[in-house]
């Protein structure tokens, strides 16, 4: 929530950067969320958009969360109709570009939840970059409905999730 408030305030004030890594290159994180799953599952996935506003590539090397034993950078790949997951050692965000983690593709694999998570729960995460930069984000647990329905849900929820837009 704090993260969203910050996003909101910085956007409102016209600041783009949420955090700056060691060499002063800006990385911006947008819309972090965790796909809700039954409370008894041990593994969840987190998604977000990483935007590199700088002139140099940024390399994400590690992600951690106090809510999970382990966080990995993963990618789901379809070979025909067969879904595979592969582990990535690092994730490069090219200069002036963004990398989007979304269902069915890139995700942070959150392994061994310390306690069951429910819709609306917050998951703090820290993204560590190769140059030493760190970004703290808070992802919200929500269902993975398709865009149109999401919007519908937001309306139903009397704007309680509106900070997202």
């Amino acid at each position: 929530m704090v993260f969203f408030l910050k996003t909101f305030i910085s956007l409102a004030l016209g600041f783009v950067a949420l955090s700056a890594s060691a060499d002063g290159v800006n990385i911006q994180i947008q819309g972090p969320w965790v796909l809700a799953a039954p409370p008894n599952v041990k593994v969840l996935a987190a998604y977000l958009e990483i935007k590199n506003n700088g002139d140099k590539p940024q390399i994400l090397t590690n992600v951690s969360s106090p809510a999970f034993e382990q966080v990995g950078i993963h990618r789901s790949v379809m070979h025909g109709n067969t879904a595979h997951m592969e582990h990535l050692k690092e994730l490069t965000i090219p200069p002036r570009a963004s990398v989007v983690l979304k269902p069915g593709g890139l995700h942070f694999m959150l392994t061994d939840a310390k306690k069951p998570l429910h819709i609306g729960d917050q998951v703090p995460m820290t993204l560590n970059f190769k140059d030493g930069g760190k970004i703290a984000v808070t992802a919200i647990v929500r269902s993975g409905q398709i865009e149109g329905m999401e919007d519908h849900q937001h309306m139903d929820h009397s704007g309680h999730e509106n900070h997202k837009h």
């Binding site: 996935a45 879904a83 269902p103 069915g104």
Partner: peptide, 14 residues
């Protein structure tokens, strides 16, 4: 399988 955090809960949700 339930240790599948991405494709499985997504498809089951759909």
């Amino acid at each position: 399988y339930t240790h599948c955090p991405d494709v499985c809960p997504l498809t089951m949700g759909v």
